[in-house]
């Protein structure tokens, strides 16, 4: 049982292949993200709200659509036999899928999350908002990783759609909870950037969930000696 890919160069090719397959959609999202950032930069509160909402929607959509396109649609379109016929092992394909989806998601995620944090820090907005931004970004990233791991491990479209909807419905309540809850110890209006114990606990929980999700998925795949 090996947890690793046999051929790093092949994994890189598979990642690049997925990037190219998803390129058109990603280009659309990048354009959408620039539009959202432009709206935020207009200086009106309504435009900033619309821009922030658009960014949030795009981040969620980028993740779920990359999984939809690169995993579910690929299965439905019967591209998997083509990939399996290449000189690859199941672990090569597994790592290729995991890394391709993570890369595709992390590029816009880093731009948006980094941009939001930079904006908070470089404008008169209270620096306390950074904690809020980090918590929400981490939650979105964790949701994406869980969804990705479920999609890789489970070929049932029904379960994947269920997981997708379940995680998406959690985003709104989580944002509301983080925004309103005093327990988090957030000082959204505060000028100082302080991560309280609850915020650190939430981030640690995010990391733990991601590690468990990827660990379990890798273990499941490492047990397979053949594709089918």
């Amino acid at each position: 049982m090996s947890w690793f890919a046999t051929d790093a160069a092949m994994v890189r090719r598979l990642v690049l292949k997925d990037w190219q397959v998803y390129q058109k959609q990603l280009a659309g999202y990048v354009a959408g993200m620039l539009l959202a950032l432009g709206l935020i930069g207009l200086g009106h509160s309504w435009a900033a709200g619309a821009g922030a909402l658009l960014l949030l929607v795009l981040l969620v959509v980028v993740g779920s659509y990359s999984i939809q396109t690169l995993l579910l649609t690929e299965r439905k379109q019967q591209n998997v036999p083509f990939i399996m016929s290449l000189p690859v092992t199941p672990m090569d394909v597994y790592w290729g899928k995991l890394l391709a989806n993570l890369a595709i998601y992390l590029v816009p995620f880093t731009v948006v999350a980094g941009g939001m944090i930079a904006m908070v820090l470089s404008t008169p907005m209270p620096d306390g908002l950074v904690v809020w931004t980090v918590l929400i970004a981490a939650f979105l990233l964790t949701s994406f990783c869980v969804l990705l791991c479920v999609a890789i491990s489970c070929s049932s479209e029904g379960w994947n759609i269920f997981t997708m909807i379940a995680l998406m419905t959690l985003v709104g309540p989580f944002i509301l909870w983080v925004t309103r809850s005093r327990q988090v110890g957030l000082d959204l209006e505060g000028e100082s950037l302080v991560f309280g114990p609850v915020a650190i606990g939430l981030l640690a929980a995010d990391v733990l969930v991601v590690v468990i999700a990827i660990g379990v998925t890798s273990w499941l795949h490492a047990r397979k000696s053949s594709f089918l």
Binding site: L34, L35, L37, G38, L39, I40, G41, L42, G115, A118, M119, S122
Partner: peptide, 20 residues
């Protein structure tokens, strides 16, 4: 029309929609 006439320099890292 989103900015003053004549147009100002879009000096912020946040992309200015009009300049884009």
């Amino acid at each position: 029309a989103l900015v003053t006439v004549p147009w100002p320099a879009p000096e912020s890292f946040l992309p200015a929609l009009w300049a884009l």
